[in-house]
Design a protein around this nucleic acid. Structure first.
Lengths: 209, 209
DNA sequence: GTTTCAATCATACGTTCGTTTGAATCACGC
DNA sequence: GCGTGATTCAAACGAACGTATGATTGAAAC
């Protein structure tokens, strides 16, 4: 076996198990068993369980961030002030697309993201890099122009709402294992529902308080 | 000490630690240390760590459910068809009120709820009783009347959105420990932001797909 | 054929976990 | 005073955890 094989197989197994059972609920032994690798392979290839998690999250988050960034670029190339629905689509859309490879595809990816984001352990949440912050700040500025009169704090609150709705929805989809919910048609329906829901929410008049 | 004292002190400590570090991240020893009790007290009073979690969650969720139920009763006593904003307030409001006692109040309560809801362990999510389902079904029916033309699936999606936005927001608030975010004023602002955000989202026209 | 180095392997270490045990302690009716 | 049942205690159990170790393999390099 080439050195790359076990590495990626460990990454795949870890992504699957972290998404399904969480970081603390997944043992290194379970990962290496699923990957068909030796227990010590995690330490050899990644250093530690925490660093393996970092590699898993980085592999999942980076394409999403790139897609969000590219979507915003595409909008701004057309007009300096995109509509709210366009911004919502460009931001939330990639969260529905997920990884190209994988049995359950995007649902598992979102499950992983929520599992990680909501994990109280510090070692779990220490992965956020500057790229994520940059993209979020750019969208924040674009939404600010599209929604004048909104205070920065309320704008931040609403952007958190986008993440919350998309992520939690995908978790629910992933939890109930009925195959109907994993069909492409159901995924597309949820995507449209989310965009409708979130565009209306973002476009609400400022609270003022 | 009366038998009730150690029991409630263990409940308080467990609620605190479960909210802060999650179920798996909290050891029974940490709970009994914080409670000033003996390690074996958990086994004696609750049977096991999982049953202690059940007692903690029950104590937290029951008043919230009762408040949601009472709020809907109050609305329906006035008119058979409450407005969307009234339903949103009655449903999401109790999620911001939280427990009466506690240092950080509702933020910790919501933190606990999300920590529990998003925990992948099965033993953690096995607490949902018939009372929670009943309340949700009643709100579902009321929202259905207030929003004709919405398919049941899309309605369910939107109700999940309410939970997602309120819960995830509170998690963020609780994670950044800055005391400004825990002030009553900030809590009230977030409450109003959430109601504005969610009322607009719920009132969006049906997607149709 | 020998050297070399990255990769994989079986195995063990020390720690922490949830749970159990049996003795000690307490309050209290008689 | 004395049993009695409920509660608390120190101590230990076996299991599972993350990590480290040193031997072993395999294929290029020379």
């Amino acid at each position: 076996m080439a050195p790359r094989d076990t590495r990626t197989q460990i990454l795949d197994a870890a992504e699957h198990l972290f998404a399904e059972r969480g970081y603390r609920g997944t043992s290194v032994r379970a990962i290496t068993d699923l990957a068909g690798a030796n227990l010590a392979a995690v330490g050899y290839h990644f250093g530690s369980k925490a660093e393996l998690l970092g590699a898993v999250v980085r592999r999942v988050v980076e394409p999403i961030n790139a897609a969000q960034c590219a979507g915003l670029d595409r909008l701004l190339a057309r007009t300096p002030d995109p509509a709210v629905i366009e911004l919502v689509e460009a931001f939330a859309g990639p969260l529905f697309d997920g990884m190209p490879a994988g049995d359950e595809g995007s649902a598992r990816t979102s499950r992983l993201i929520v599992t990680i984001l909501s994990d109280p352990a510090e070692e779990v949440r220490s992965w956020t890099g500057p790229a994520e912050d940059t993209v979020r700040e750019r969208y924040l500025a674009a939404f600010g122009r599209a929604l004048p009169g909104l205070s920065p704090e309320e704008l931040r609150f609403r952007m958190r709402g986008i993440l919350a709705v998309t992520a939690v929805d995908r978790v629910e989809v992933h939890q109930q294992r009925s195959p109907a919910c994993l069909s492409p048609a159901a995924g597309e329906a949820a995507r449209h529902w989310a965009i409708t829901f979130l565009t209306a929410a973002m476009s609400a008049p400022p609270t003022g308080t």
